[in-house]
């Protein structure tokens, strides 16, 4: 335990925590994307999937049991990820001291430069997203448990759909740099892995973007409609 606390004090320890919480969040992002695609199976499949999640683990656990365990775990992961990022950012900002008059930024990628603000934007988007489709607070016509209907009505607003596309674009960019960085941070240094870590991260990010974009695009293109 003492060892772990000492490790957390170090920059490498904080980054390891960011990597582990990031992997958990990326796993959720992938599962969520696969769940979204049930939209293309129709209202029964989508609403049934929502019921399945609510009843997962029942009767061993109460209804909503697994769902709330997952929600708490995800909230903890977001908290750890953001706290470590904030502490690391503070330390790095202090480490530069005086700024350069001229700085050539072509040596680093757009994805890596936008990790911090991109992360903040994703966090704000997640808050909006929960108010939109989970609680329905900012939804124009929300009906509890009618997931398919709520999603179609939600995305029939073009500004809302465009905002979602921008947000999942930011998410994909964040995941690209994050996913390949995980290998470095956790010390995976097998040359075979090192060679494919960037293409692997790029492929997964593109896959996630396409999967997430499919639903709002499907609604706007008129493929997904109210029954």
């Amino acid at each position: 335990m003492r060892q772990a606390l000492t490790l957390y004090r170090s920059s490498v320890g904080k980054k390891a925590l960011m990597a582990v919480s990031g992997i958990l969040l990326a796993g959720f992002v992938l599962a969520h994307m696969l769940g979204n695609l049930k939209m293309f199976q129709g209202p029964e499949a989508m609403d049934g999937y929502a019921v399945f999640l609510k009843e997962l683990g029942y009767p061993v656990l109460p209804e909503y049991g697994v769902l709330w365990i997952a929600r708490i775990a995800l909230l903890a992961a977001v908290g750890i990820h953001a706290l470590a990022a904030f502490q690391l950012w503070q330390k790095s900002r202090a480490a530069r001291g005086a700024a350069y008059r001229k700085e050539d930024s072509q040596v680093f990628s757009y994805a890596s430069r936008t990790m911090r603000w991109g992360g903040v934007i994703i966090l704000l988007f997640v808050v909006y997203h929960i108010l939109h489709f989970t609680t329905g607070t900012v939804h124009s016509d929300f009906e509890y448990a009618s997931v398919y209907r709520n999603v179609v009505i939600g995305f029939q607003s073009v500004p809302v759909s465009l905002f979602y596309l921008v947000a999942v674009g930011a998410l994909a960019l964040h995941l690209y740099h994050g996913l390949w960085s995980v290998f470095s941070t956790l010390g995976v240094q097998n040359p075979k892995v090192t060679r494919i870590r960037r293409p692997l991260a790029a492929g997964l990010s593109i896959l996630l973007f396409v999967g997430y974009a499919a639903v709002p695009v499907g609604v706007m293109a008129g493929i997904l409609t109210l029954p």
Partner: peptide, 25 residues
Amino acid sequence: GNCTNHGACQEVCPKGISVNYISRL
């Protein structure tokens, strides 16, 4: 500060040292 895997160090290193050493550390 702490490494965020930008790779700028590797780009300017006059000896071309690879960032892969960081992952070993």
